[in-house]
Amino acid sequence: MNKERLMKMAGAVRTGGKGTMRRKKKAVHKTGTTDDKRLQSTLKRVGVNTIPAIEEVNIFKDDLVIQFVNPKVQASIAANTWVVSGSPQTKSPDNMEHLKRIAEEMQKQVAAAGATAQAKEENDDDVPELVPGENFEEVAQETKA
């Protein structure tokens, strides 16, 4: 390297003019916090509320279980949006008996909820029976008099 080129490179790292100190270290800009801020502002627009005191969240997906221990859970019922943030662990339900039991109970609850919803839909079309022995027209005329 020649002396002119070396002086030109050294001049590029000065913070001021000739005779000032050079920078001690290179400034590193972080973009990770901007992504988090952008996500939080979007969630605020959706209208999510924090749900306190949730110790564990298990997401059952095919043959895997994604488990969050002490997660931050936010929900917006109107937007049908749930946000679970924390450190996830991917596990197999075969190794964990209590997760297998929970999965079976959830499947039973979903099946039962579907059956009751179907029964309610069938009963909604029916006209309710009147109370036997009462004539509502007579009661209405008595109240007028």
Rank of each mutant, 00 (worst) to 15 (best):
K61C: 06
E122C: 00
D126R: 14
R14F: 04
A78H: 05
A53S: 13
E105N: 14
Q40A: 13
D63Y: 00
N49Q: 09
G19I: 04
N58Q: 12
Q67M: 08
K91Q: 04
K37G: 10
V69C: 07
L64G: 07
S92Y: 02
V73S: 07
A12R: 15
E138I: 04
A112D: 11
K61T: 07
A12T: 04
V83K: 10
N70K: 15
T81C: 09
K120P: 00
V127F: 09
P88L: 11
L39A: 14
T33K: 12
G133Y: 00
K25R: 14
A12M: 10
P93A: 12
N2L: 00
E55Y: 02
E105P: 03
L6V: 06
K91I: 01
K44R: 10
T31K: 15
I66R: 11
D94T: 04
I54E: 02
K144N: 09
E138L: 08
P128E: 14
N80G: 09
H98K: 13
E55C: 02
A10N: 07
T116D: 08
Q89C: 02
E134K: 14
A53L: 08
G32A: 11
R101H: 09
G11L: 00
P71R: 09
G133I: 03
D36A: 12
I66Y: 04
V84Y: 03
K25A: 12
T31S: 14
